[in-house]
């Protein structure tokens, strides 16, 4: 990474990773693929969950997996416009 990624870009990256393997991805895999620290993963996972962009599923063994919601897919679809809007007014 040459430049510091902003919040919106990290959220898009995480959502895209979850969307690519919807329902079959574990938190550690998201952490590695999105190039995040453990602390940052926790912060952003909570953010995505609270905004209802993803939902968490826990199986009988206690294994957690994630699925992108319709709201999350809308975010991904409109990401380019959102990113440009945030960039032009330096919102983050």
């Amino acid at each position: 990474m040459n430049t510091k990624r902003d919040k919106i870009a990290i959220m898009q990256s995480m959502l895209q990773i979850v969307a690519n393997k919807s329902g079959r991805i574990k938190p550690t895999e998201i952490m590695y693929k999105a190039n995040l620290s453990h602390e940052m993963l926790k912060v952003y996972m909570n953010e995505l969950l609270s905004k209802e962009f993803i939902i968490e599923q826990v199986d009988k063994k206690g294994k957690r997996t994630y699925t992108v919601t319709i709201k999350g897919y809308t975010f991904l679809k409109d990401y380019e416009v959102i990113k440009k809007f945030f960039d032009s007014y330096h919102l983050n």
């Binding site: 975010f75 409109d78 959102i82």
Partner: peptide, 18 residues
């Protein structure tokens, strides 16, 4: 209106204040 639409999708407070 555009900023509120962005807020609806992103739920980012800054878009709402904007």
């Amino acid at each position: 209106l555009f900023a509120f639409k962005i807020f609806k999708v992103t739920a980012q407070k800054q878009a709402r204040f904007f």
